[in-house]
Computed example of a mutant assay.
Amino acid sequence: MAKPIGECGGPRHVAIIMDGNGRWAQGRGRPRLFGHQAGARRVREIVEACPDAGVKYLTIFAFSTENWKRTQSEVAGLMSLFRRYITKEARSLRAENVRVRFIGDRHKLDDKLRLLMDELEKMTAHCTGVNLTIALNYGGRDEVARATKRLAEDVAAGRLEPADIGEETLPRYLDTCLLPDPDLVIRTSGEARISNFLLWQSAYAEYEFVDTLWPDFCAEEFAQLTAGFGGRERRFGAVPA
């Protein structure tokens, strides 16, 4: 539910497009995968910064449906990095009371990675602290298409009447059906586009495009952005009194 005009407070749900890993590495004369490794380490710092910022939900864009277009070596390196990250961080995330979910189409991912994802979700299902959602092989248009297909199947099976379909119906079929919509979306690296990320969910989100490359994005900058969000006036289509 939208808050009344003028009552903003801090963001409950922050989504981040983690951009700039490759450029960060290249600027240091290192391969792109070196930047992705540095970016993965940065995730922990931002997750740990969430409670102090009042952020209950953090969603990060790890790998898009378009990222398969990258070189075979980079894609293979990223998949290996995801597997290592889950294996290395699983116990720490559970110990820190972080609940982990994955969104995106898992079918194209390898069996071992899918198994690790399933195990991490089950391992942290009882956690009540920060809700960390990792978008992996995710695309906003792909998500809406998959959701629409499931909705159409329910109509065809007689479980849903076409006349009952409204704006509140589709979100129940989205990957994010258990999450609130993001209040604030941050994109690092100086690019000012949303890159097919949470298209439906971010209809009324506030955006921050920052120049910092993701491996340099620190808890202090995160805190500044979330604190600045509290000073915004969110109208949701209305006008101030």
Rank of each mutant, 00 (worst) to 15 (best):
R150K: 12
Q224P: 07
P182N: 03
A241R: 09
G231M: 05
S195E: 06
N67G: 11
C127T: 00
E220K: 13
E143Q: 10
E161G: 13
S73M: 11
M117N: 04
L213E: 09
L225T: 12
K108N: 14
P240G: 10
R32I: 09
L93N: 04
V14A: 10
E48N: 08
F229V: 13
E66C: 02
A25Q: 06
H36C: 13
Y85A: 11
A15M: 08
Y138S: 14
G158L: 01
N196T: 07
P182M: 01
R32A: 12
D164H: 10
G27Q: 12
E208P: 08
A40D: 02
A2H: 14
C177E: 12
Q224V: 14
N67C: 11
D105L: 05
A205H: 01
I134D: 01
Q201F: 05
E45G: 06
S195K: 04
F34S: 15
A2E: 10
E45F: 00
F209K: 13
E233M: 12
A219C: 11
G22S: 15
W200D: 08
C177W: 13
R41D: 13
S80P: 06
L198G: 07
T133E: 09
I5K: 03
F217C: 09
I5A: 13
R94N: 00
Y207H: 13
G27E: 11
E233R: 14
K88E: 07
M1K: 11
R32D: 08
F34M: 07
R172L: 15
A238N: 05
C50V: 06
A219S: 15
E161I: 07
A227T: 11
D111A: 15
G29C: 07
N21P: 04
C127P: 05
